[in-house]
Amino acid sequence: MRTNISGFALVLILGLFFTQIHSLRFDLESGKSKCIAEDIKSNSMTVGKYHVVNPNEGYPLPDSHKITARVTSTYGNSYHNADNVPDGQFAFQTAEAGDYMACFFAADHKPPITITVDFDWKTGIAAKDWTNVAKKGSVEVMEMELKKMYETVQSIHDEMFYLREREEEMQELNRSTHSKMNMLTFVSVLVCLSVAGLQLWHLKTFFEKKKLI
């Protein structure tokens, strides 16, 4: 039983780390945009860097291979803006929880071209450069490892509370939806019975006038 719990905890921790690191390469057609969303909790550090891949290795990057980048929060707050650049980076601490969107746009060209973009986005523990922390503070190896462990545990703790809050929000939404559906069902049944009653009354009145009953 303890082995199963340990294995589950290991999978959970690894899953948390993997969801905190997003490195990808994608193609962006001229005149079009592409957006990447990341669900980040509040008070979490996030860093990202991107660059246009040179289609001709060993030669200068063509002037046409430049992009516009925007990073915004779920509430529309802007955290990064860059126009007509070959590369860039951003770093900030989130003020609110939710989906953060990184959007890239390539200017229109005739004939159309395809730009390859390399994008690396990290959040939480993965966003902290521990090597630089050790160099700047002259921290001993053991102290550094302990700090990393503490930050990891704190991150997992915060992630668990964040997931619990999201679960409570979903449960509240389900309860609200269920209550509205019950009310709608009751109103529908009431309307159907009322219509049926009116139809019976109308038929009865009609037959009485015709002296059929």
Rank of each mutant, 00 (worst) to 15 (best):
F119Q: 04
H109A: 07
H109V: 06
M101C: 07
F119Y: 12
S73W: 08
K110S: 06
W121E: 11
I67V: 13
A106R: 01
P62E: 01
S78N: 03
S64F: 03
A95K: 13
G124A: 15
A97F: 02
Q89A: 11
T68W: 08
I125L: 15
T116V: 12
D83L: 03
A69M: 14
N84S: 04
I125P: 04
G124M: 15
Q93V: 08
Q93C: 11
G98P: 05
A107E: 12
D87M: 01
G88A: 05
L61W: 09
S78M: 14
T74M: 15
F92T: 00
D108L: 11
D99R: 12
T72I: 13
A82P: 04
T74H: 15
D120S: 11
I67L: 06
T123Y: 15
F119D: 01
P86N: 04
K110I: 02
N77T: 14
P62H: 05
T74I: 06
A91T: 09
P112Y: 04
I115V: 12
V117Y: 02
A69D: 03
V71P: 00
N81A: 08
A102G: 03
D108T: 11
T94F: 03
A82F: 03
I113Y: 10
I125M: 14
T72L: 09
A107N: 07
A126P: 08
A126G: 14
S73D: 09
A82S: 09
K122M: 15
D118P: 01
H65F: 15
A106C: 05
F119L: 14
D99S: 10
T72D: 10
V117I: 12
T72H: 11
F105P: 02
Y79E: 06
D63Q: 12
K122H: 14
F105I: 10
C103K: 06
Y100W: 09
R70Q: 04
S64K: 01
P111H: 10
D120H: 12
Q89G: 13
T116D: 05
F90G: 01
F119A: 03
G76D: 04
A106M: 07
G124L: 14
P86C: 08
M101V: 00
D87T: 02
D108R: 10
D99P: 08
M101W: 07
Q89S: 14
A126H: 08
Q89I: 00
D118Y: 05
P62M: 04
N84H: 01
D99H: 08
T94Y: 06
